[in-house]
C-alpha cells in the first residue's frame, strides 16, 4: 500500500510559493536569497529523490543528495530550455523547475505507518547550528577585516581624456587648427596637485603655448588638464603630452594627427 506524502509535498509547495513571492516582492537582499534557497538547492532534488524512491535508504545523506540532484536538475533544465528557445531565463528557472518537479513527490512510496520527522526538533537543531555559524563567521570576518593586509605600491597614471582616448587611428585635422586635448591624472595616494603640470610636444618640440600647464584637481586622487595645441604644418605629427612634477617628467601619452592644408586634405609634409 502506498502512503502518499501529502504533508511533505505541501511543505515543499509552500517553500516554492514563498520563494516565488520573495522573487516578485523583494528587492535583492539576503532575505530574498534565503527565501529562494529551498527552490534552488532543495525542492528539485527532493522531488527527484522522491521519484527514484531512494530516500528510505539514503538515510542521513538525503539532504546532501537532494542538494546535488537540485544542482544537476538545474543544469539539465538550463540545457533543455536553451535548446528549445536559444536562451535561458535564469532568474525564474529555479522556481519553474521546482514547481514542475513538485508533483513527483506524490509518486514516492513512503513506508506505511512511518512517522514524520519532528519539524520542531529539526528546526531547533538548524537554529543552533545557524546561530553558531553566524557567530563564528562574524568573529572571523571582523578579525579578517581589521588585520593588516598586503600593502599596495603607489602608482600614478596619466591618460588621454575623452574623446581622444577613444578615437581610432591617426586623427585627421587641418593645418593651423588648434586641438584641445584633455588628459587625466590619477594617483593611488592623495597628492598635492599644484606640483603637477602638463606640457605638450609636437614631434618632440615643446609648444610654448602649451607648456607647464597646471593640472586641476577633480578629487583627492584625480586631476585633469586640457592642453591646446596648434598644428604647425600639413603632415603626420606626433603630439606628446608629458606630465611633470616640479619639472621632472613622469608620464606621457601621445596622439598622432595628420594635419592637412585645407578641408580638401592632401598637402605635403614638411620634412625636418
Amino acid at each position: 500500500m502506498r502512503n502518499i506524502p501529502w504533508r511533505r509535498t505541501a511543505v515543499l509547495a509552500l517553500l516554492v510559493l514563498i520563494g516565488a513571492i520573495a522573487y516578485v516582492a523583494q528587492a535583492p537582499t539576503p532575505l530574498r536569497a534565503l527565501l529562494l534557497a529551498p527552490a534552488l538547492f532543495w525542492v528539485p532534488g527532493r522531488s527527484l529523490v522522491a521519484v527514484t524512491g531512494v530516500a528510505r535508504t539514503a538515510g542521513r545523506f538525503t539532504a546532501p543528495l537532494c542538494v546535488a540532484l537540485s544542482l544537476v536538475s538545474l543544469i539539465f533544465a538550463g540545457l533543455v530550455v536553451n535548446l528549445a528557445v536559444g536562451h535561458v531565463p535564469l532568474s525564474v528557472l529555479p522556481l519553474w523547475l521546482s514547481a514542475l518537479l513538485l508533483p513527483l513527490n506524490l509518486l514516492e512510496r513512503a513506508p506505511v505507518g512511518s512517522r514524520p520527522r519532528s519539524v520542531a526538533r529539526a528546526m531547533r537543531t538548524t537554529a543552533w547550528l545557524s546561530a553558531g555559524l553566524i557567530a563564528s563567521a562574524t568573529i572571523v570576518w571582523t578579525v579578517h577585516a581589521n588585520l593588516p593586509a598586503a600593502p599596495q605600491q603607489p602608482y600614478l597614471s596619466f591618460s588621454l581624456g575623452a574623446p581622444y582616448s577613444t578615437v581610432h587611428g591617426v586623427v585627421p585635422i587641418r593645418a593651423g587648427q588648434t586641438l584641445k586635448i584633455p588628459a587625466d591624472v590619477e594617483s593611488s595616494q592623495s597628492s598635492d596637485w599644484s606640483q603637477y603640470s602638463v606640457s605638450a610636444l609636437v614631434d618632440g618640440r615643446t609648444v610654448p603655448s602649451a607648456s607647464a600647464l597646471l593640472v586641476r584637481a577633480t578629487g583627492p586622487h584625480s586631476a585633469d588638464v586640457a592642453v591646446r595645441v596648434p598644428m604647425p604644418s600639413p603632415c603626420l605629427h606626433q603630439i606628446r603630452l608629458v606630465l611633470t612634477q616640479a619639472g621632472k617628467p613622469l608620464r606621457s601619452v601621445d596622439l598622432y594627427v595628420n594635419a592637412t592644408a585645407g578641408t580638401g586634405g592632401g598637402g605635403s609634409c614638411a620634412r625636418h
Binding site: 522573487y23 523583494q26 528587492a27 535583492p28 537582499t29 530574498r32 536569497a33 529562494l36 534557497a37 527552490a39 534552488l40 544542482l71 538545474l74 543544469i75 538550463g78 540545457l79 535561458v88 535564469l90 532568474s91 525564474v92 528557472l93 529555479p94 522556481l95
Partner: peptide
Amino acid sequence: LVTASISDATG
C-alpha cells in the same frame, strides 16, 4: 548556468 541562475534569482 547554476551560478548565473543563483545570481539572477536571488539578486
